[in-house]
């Protein structure tokens, strides 16, 4: 572990940390791309890296790969300095760019072999398996591949390499659902082998299915980090119910918000943690119909992606109210 020597003491990088970024800043001329970003990826985890377009995900990744020079901040990658030790560290990682460009006169198979060899070796059996799994024709020349197939070439090259860390920048944006499934299967295998993955993605189902933890960034800063469960607990479930009797005592429940009572009908939001308790209270009174809108990942991300949170929330609440009013007339009664 000779490379430990380089890690700076200030960042508090632990030996379990595959990627440690603290207070990273990067500007291009007058635009600030990264404005004090933090990112911590534990060894062995699949870490989702999320944020709106232009929020600085790719810039962060390019700093991590030593392609861009950070203006300030601590950056550690596999216990080394990605700027100074780029080539050494790169032997231990594989990268799939969001925009895959291939050499027009090289076939996909040749690119896979070349990149693998430059990384210090390629698992031939694994290469064959992956080509089959992703249904890739390795004899086509770079130019003739579609976007999705170019991405498959980069994916096979990365996944067939024997590396500790995979850095994937929107790797599935051009893949069809079948290939998406193949990708998820492969990433699960990779995690099973104890490798670390940093996955930048906009496909929320993919993030939900694969990631142990996620970091959400916006305008060059980290706004949220945690497990998906952690994050989901921060959201609320919306409940509309028509009850058998008058809704008493609901307002006194903790974690119930925006309660509106209209005769025997109630509308409220409840913190997802306390959903169970609220429902128990409702069934005590007697439920004649119930609509529950669970917190979606979309909601979660929209909350973090939107610029003015309070305003946006109010607007969404208003929209939800309007939708509800409209929906009430058509609602079918369900027997409790």
């Amino acid at each position: 572990m000779t490379h430990n020597a380089v890690s700076s003491p200030s960042s508090g990088a632990t030996t379990h940390e595959a990627i440690g970024v603290a207070g990273l800043r990067k500007t291009f001329g007058r635009t600030t791309a990264l404005d004090g970003l933090d990112l911590h990826v534990e060894t062995g985890e699949v870490h989702g890296f999320l944020g709106p377009n232009g929020s600085g995900k790719s810039t962060t990744i390019r700093v991590l790969l030593g392609l861009l020079h950070a203006d300030s901040g601590d950056v550690h990658l596999l216990h080394g300095d990605p700027w100074r030790q780029a080539a050494t560290l790169h032997r231990r990682l594989a990268y799939v760019p969001g925009d895959v460009n291939l050499w027009p006169n090289l076939s996909g198979g040749e690119v896979i072999d070349l990149l693998g060899r430059l990384r210090g070796g390629l698992d031939k059996r694994r290469r064959g398996e992956l080509i089959e799994r992703f249904e890739l024709d390795p004899t086509k020349k770079g130019r003739t591949y579609s976007k999705g197939n170019r991405q498959k070439v980069a994916l096979v090259a990365a996944l067939a390499s024997d590396v500790e860390l995979l850095i994937l920048d929107e790797p599935t944006s051009g893949l069809d659902p079948l290939m998406e499934a193949a990708f998820q299967e492969t990433i699960r295998e990779v995690r099973g082998e104890g490798r670390t993955v940093l996955l930048s993605s906009h496909i929320l189902a993919e993030v939900e299915a694969l990631c142990d933890r996620v970091s959400i960034i916006r305008a060059g800063r980290t706004v949220e980090t945690g497990t998906l469960d952690d994050l989901r607990h921060l959201t609320r479930t919306s409940i509309s119910a028509e009850l058998a009797g008058h809704p008493n005592g609901l307002a006194s429940l903790p974690h119930v918000h925006d309660l509106r009572v209209d005769g025997n009908t109630v509308h409220f939001d409840v913190d997802t943690d306390s959903l169970d308790e609220a429902l128990r209270r409702l069934t005590d009174i007697g439920v004649r119909s119930l609509t529950s809108t669970p917190p979606t990942l979309e909601e979660l991300f929209l909350r973090h992606y939107t610029d003015e949170l309070p305003g946006a929330e109010a607007e969404r609440a208003e929209q939800a109210a309007r939708a509800e009013t409209a929906g009430r007339e058509e609602k079918t009664r369900t027997a409790p």
Binding site: G109, D113, L114, P138, T139
Partner: peptide, 26 residues
Amino acid sequence: PGRPGRATATSGLRTSLALSWRLHRG
């Protein structure tokens, strides 16, 4: 029309110099 290429790289294509040769030779 373009011809299909090799499914695997020749053993020579293993360095960035070898790639440069492919790019520059024509």
